[in-house]
């Protein structure tokens, strides 16, 4: 398990990773690999929460099942922070929610007045 397989996550033309499917596609590249893995985030300025959440889940699952390590390299602060945030919310069930009033207007003029006021 001393070998390292390096995966460049994106070419230089694309600086953000957005969907869960892209995270899944990245992990398809390492199926069956017997080495440790490095995901290289060079050029990536932004990752969405969805991408980060899926990437984090797959990383944990892979490391547990394959008994290998996945390293994240050349990630900027934004990427590191987003991965950190999703790692903290995997088991979070209590979200604060301020009740929102539900309003009905008896005629369309009152609805228009409301909309013009926003």
């Amino acid at each position: 398990m001393s070998l390292i397989k390096k995966i460049i996550v994106s070419d230089s033309a694309k600086n953000s990773l957005i969907s869960r499917e892209i995270a899944v596609a990245l992990f398809k590249k390492i199926i069956g690999s017997e080495s440790n893995i490095e995901f290289d985030f060079t050029n990536i300025e932004f990752i969405s929460r969805s991408f980060a959440d899926q990437f984090y889940k797959l990383k944990i699952e892979y490391e547990q099942n394959q008994n290998s390590k996945i390293q994240i390299v050349n990630a900027n602060e934004n990427v590191i922070n987003m991965l950190d945030i999703v790692s903290q919310t995997q088991n979070s069930t209590n979200r604060e929610f301020q009740p929102v009033p539900i309003i009905k207007f008896s005629n369309s003029e009152m609805l228009s007045d409301y909309l013009f006021s926003i």
Binding site: S16, L17, E21, A25
Partner: peptide
């Protein structure tokens, strides 16, 4: 669609719009 070709196209579009 979640098929690979369309996922990649969508991903590239949103990334390009962000740029």
């Amino acid at each position: 669609s979640l098929i690979d070709r369309e996922s990649t196209l969508r991903e590239n579009i949103i990334s390009a719009i962000g740029s």
